[in-house]
């Protein structure tokens, strides 16, 4: 376990806590993409099937359980606070992401078995799952500060995994090609957001997309 991976996992954990905090204190689902959150439930459930047959560490097991349970809880919260009268900005055709991730998983996997294909599927889906949320952000124009912090912490997590993979390549000779390539893709998807976040939030201005 190296510092990049721990910081990455912590930032992932924090992002979810920020989201739960934001939705439960405002009692509003506004500005949050239900499609993105539902995609994360699929991501975690399909990736962590190995909970049933592979033990890595207590840390690993607890984190996996946390991500599965919290993602389901978030979807439950969003449904609870979603107002039908609200004009929705959550319009991205999310099935394209599911379909694309599935095709990629069939092509790129370590073994042509259900568990390995679902594992690869979860990585590809995760790498693009934020897109409906970014679309909501763009259409809303202005977002709550907490929402932008949430997206930032979530993006930071996979970005921190990149130095972790470089570190593990040199120290352990370990190279997980599928995770690395999908992880880089995920970070690229975020790059535009990171730039705007830096300009608007770090420089203490109101978050507004052009």
């Amino acid at each position: 376990m190296n510092i990049f991976r721990i910081l990455g996992d912590i930032s992932h954990l924090i992002s979810i806590l920020i989201l739960i905090h934001a939705v439960s204190t405002t009692k509003s689902a506004q500005g949050i993409s239900l499609k993105t959150q539902a995609a994360y439930v699929v991501v975690f459930v399909s990736r962590y099937l190995d909970l049933f047959f592979r033990y890595v560490s207590l840390y690993n097991t607890l984190m996996k359980l946390f991500f599965i349970v919290s993602s389901i809880y978030v979807v439950f919260l969003l449904n609870r606070y979603k107002k039908n009268s609200e004009k929705t900005n959550d319009i991205f055709p999310v099935w394209y992401l599911f379909g694309g991730a599935f095709v990629f998983a069939l092509i790129f996997n370590y073994e042509f078995s259900i568990v390995e294909i679902l594992w690869s599927f979860s990585l590809w889906l995760e790498s693009v799952a934020i897109i409906p949320q970014l679309v909501v952000l763009q259409r809303t124009g202005e977002a709550q500060l907490l929402t932008t912090h949430y997206i930032f912490a979530l993006g930071l997590y996979r970005a921190l995994y990149i130095p972790n993979w470089i570190y593990r390549y040199y120290t352990e000779g370990r190279m997980d090609k599928i995770a690395v390539i999908s992880g880089i893709l995920q970070t690229i998807v975020y790059s535009d957001f990171f730039y705007i976040y830096y300009k608007k939030v770090v420089k203490n201005l109101k978050f507004k997309l052009p």
Binding site: H12, R54, V56, S57, N60, F67, W119, N164, G173, D176
Partner: peptide, 10 residues
């Protein structure tokens, strides 16, 4: 380097 991995990450 090993190409196959153990899936020990989150």
């Amino acid at each position: 380097p090993k190409v196959q991995t153990s899936h020990d990450e989150l």
